[in-house]
Amino acid sequence: MVEILDWVRWGLNHSDRVLMLTFEHLRLSLPAILASLLVSVPIAAAANRLRPLREVIVSGTGLLYAMPSLPLFIVLPIILGTGVRDMINVVVALTLFGISLMVRSAADGLAAVPEHIRLSATAQGFSPWRRFIGVDLPLAGPAMLAGLRVVSVSTISLVSVSAVLGVQSLGSLFTDGFQRSIVASIVIGILATALLALLMDLLLVLLGRLLMPWTQTARTSAGPVGRGRGR
């Protein structure tokens, strides 16, 4: 029990540094999360359009997830021509992981938009582009949000690894704590990372409710709203 007090005291004493590292952590993970969404949607849409290549593209990007993070952080600078400790590498690598998780969610979500609704939108005079933005994307929204939540948790957890290379993030609390044998540093680091992942998740759920209010409505009627998976 004494230890817990020690950890709390350490955290309070170093709150400036923890906050700064949290900020750095977000500076690495937020662009990656956002970029993986923005890159995945067009890839998914294209994959769905090119029927025969769909599985190749979706599985192929999924294979990116097999890439070990640390080696990727090291190989990327060579390919990109940046320095090993450059934050660009980390963001690009994290984006690649994000894409590997996100493309399937987006492709499945877009493919699950009911055909009669797409037909109906076409009949109302939606141009193909407008239909994609105004009908396909919002209706694939819930599936994409589910994917993005996984990306968010995974990204925030993975950022820490880059600390081994000397990139600043909450992971620095692990490397510092390990090298100087400060348990409190590591414990606070783990808690802060988990808390950050949790908060981001809550934020995404909230954002989903705000942007997709129709998913909150009753699913009692046989209307086309509920596309939830049966058990």
């Binding site: 009949a123 209706l139 929204g141």
Partner: peptide, 21 residues
């Protein structure tokens, strides 16, 4: 076609209403 569809009403089975609107 797109302009044409906007001046012709279309009603289909299963209503085809946009569930998110």
């Amino acid at each position: 076609p797109v302009a044409l569809r906007r001046r012709i009403g279309y009603v289909m089975q299963n209503s085809g209403l946009l569930p998110h609107r």
